[in-house]
Design a protein around this nucleic acid. Structure first.
Lengths: 198, 198
DNA sequence: TAAGTCATGTAAAAAGTTACATGATTCT
DNA sequence: AGAATCATGTAACTTTTTACATGACTTA
């Protein structure tokens, strides 16, 4: 039973960014600055936010009692606020993670450009998609390095799909497949364009 | 040489949605209503916009001289405005399509949820990802039907990568690969979760 | 008679991006 | 000396989403 102040925020809806932050804080307590870094490094491939979006969102989550912060004084560095997830925050996260997401367009500008490919010279276009393939191959290679590291370091935990390590690995596998498929498609586009140049 | 009114808008930047509309209008002249439908049917998988975003964007494009409209009176139906791409619009489209897009996070909420998978019960989670796999398998099947149709109807045009038909086909292939990979990943997640239930 | 299609808009709110603002310490 | 890291914020702007608003005709 929730009463008083806690009940006030009951109705207010949490944004996807809010859940992303809760998901990171469920693993470890972090400052806004660190959350921005985790956002880039860990889940930046499929969700992103700069610090200008994170700080106000943390304040909102705290208002609703889903996170709490503790001020920490530091020497030689500016003071910081370390945020932790609360029990209510944990409940909100679990509730969100267990239900399907509403499907939305992926908003991939490069695919949008392909739709107008016929308006561009084939030589120029082939070069563009070969460069794009390279980008995705590099990202793929980076993910493969991380995967190998995980398999070595987390061998034990990865056997159990109820660990945060497995969840990280599953996320990475999605990136792996996404980049592999994307690179392949870019190469296919470039190859087909090459055939027109002859 | 551009002078006077045309020059005024030179500097103003066109949004991705603007280019999406130009890309559709480069193939055929359309009304705002039809553009919203094309958006859903043709490129909805990787870019989306409702009519409330399209009508104002068309007005902006017209201000900048990239599209022009002709009012058409109809019987039994409300009057409409048929938009066409201008030469300036064509130039803008080609310039945009020939350069790489700035990479952005894909903002896939389902992948974000996987990152917090460990917080959810494995039985519940397995059901969720099996349902999700189904969604992507159905979408894949739909794309396969369209692909088969294209290969029959557009056999001639698809041999030349400089046709709009080929561009449509290339776009579809991206969706095909994306859904296939996504479904496969969902099944993998579900299977791994099953192993924990025993 | 209720829902769907055709047709065009505006308004408000939410989400996301880019820029402004400050300041100490550490690395190159 | 300049750039990067740690650290937290606000402001302005753009983009996206959801809701409001209207109205004739067609199909189930």
């Amino acid at each position: 039973m929730r009463t008083g102040e806690e009940a006030i925020a009951q109705g207010a809806k949490i944004s996807t960014l809010g859940y992303a932050l809760l998901g990171l804080l469920a693993r470890e307590s972090l400052t806004g600055y660190e959350l921005a870094a985790r956002m880039r490094e860990r889940i930046g491939f499929f969700w992103g936010a700069g610090h200008s979006q994170i700080y106000p969102e943390l304040a909102k989550l705290e208002e609703r009692g889903l996170v709490a912060h503790e001020p920490v004084e530091q020497e030689g560095k500016p003071d910081k606020k370390v945020y932790s997830i609360t029990e209510a925050g944990w409940g909100a996260l679990v509730g969100w993670a267990a239900v399907p997401a509403k499907p939305r367009p992926i908003r991939d500008e490069m695919t949008l450009k392909v739709y107008s490919l016929w308006a561009v010279g084939p030589v120029e276009a082939a070069a563009l998609y070969r460069t794009e393939a390279l980008r995705h191959e590099e990202q793929l290679a980076e993910y493969e390095r991380i995967r190998d590291w995980m398999k070595e370091e987390w061998a034990e935990a990865l056997r159990d799909p109820r660990t945060p390590e497995f969840a990280s690995y599953a996320t990475l596998r999605r990136g792996l497949g996404y980049e592999r498929e994307y690179a392949e498609w870019c190469r296919w586009v470039a190859e087909r364009l090459d055939s027109a140049e002859v």
